[in-house]
């Protein structure tokens, strides 16, 4: 079985609610995107600074649009197209000012490796979420707490926490789109 069918299988499982399969898929996508984005940016003579932001924005788009993937078609080309869309979008938003021309092909060799731990623009974007959303996002990701835990603390139902998280993610994607570096 090739990786395309594998990813498709993982996404099918994820859409049925399998969280472990979804995590695995997102991990593998993040790695594949990181390599692909680095290659594309290098070919355009751009630095590595944007890579992790583009990876994160692509994962967010995959997540929010996953219901529109037609599972009778292979998943990999769809995911690739979503990443490509985000990459193009970001380059257009970034404009020419961030263009870093290289006059020597050696430059591509000494570019630093992309850093998966890089925070990038997302901190700036998180800062623009409203306080309640930022608090929720931080609790569920950085602090690694469960939705039930957050629900107990805030007195909201677990369902309400889930709805709030989904709204926060949509808002995050919208803020990314509006962001002009």
């Amino acid at each position: 079985m090739d990786s395309k069918d594998r990813w498709g299988g993982l996404m099918r499982a994820a859409r049925l609610g399998d969280e472990a399969a979804y995590r695995l898929l997102l991990d593998e996508l993040a790695r594949a995107f990181r390599t692909a984005v680095r290659t594309r940016l290098a070919r355009m003579g751009r630095g590595n600074a944007d890579i992790e932001d583009i990876v994160q924005e692509s994962l967010l788009a995959i997540h929010l649009k996953r219901a529109t993937w037609d599972d009778t078609r292979p998943f990999a080309p769809w995911a690739q197209a979503v990443m490509s869309h985000k990459l193009t979008d970001r380059l257009r938003r970034g404009g020419a000012t961030r263009f870093e021309p290289i006059d020597d092909s050696l430059d591509t060799l000494i570019l630093p490796e992309p850093d998966p731990d890089a925070a990038g623009d997302v901190e700036r974007i998180l800062a623009r979420l409203d306080p309640a959303q930022r608090r929720l996002v931080t609790a569920l990701s950085l602090e690694g707490r469960s939705a039930a835990d957050v629900a107990a603390e805030t007195g909201a139902s677990e369902g309400a926490v889930r709805v709030a998280l989904h709204r926060a993610l949509k808002r995050l994607a919208a803020l990314y789109r509006e962001d002009r570096p």
Binding site: R15, L16, G17, E19, Y22, R23, L26, D27, A30, E52, V55, Q56, L59, L60, H63, R66, A67, T68, W69, D70, D71, P116, D117, A118, A119, V122, E123, L126, V137, L140, S141, L142, G144, A147, R162, L165, H166, L169
Partner: peptide, 25 residues
């Protein structure tokens, strides 16, 4: 936020079963 944290966040946004969008058209 690291990419791993974002992945945690996305995985947590799990509505259960997502109905296939094929009836949407």
């Amino acid at each position: 936020m690291k990419t791993d944290d974002l992945i945690t966040l996305l995985a947590r946004d799990n509505p259960g079963v997502i109905v296939d969008d094929r009836t949407a058209p």
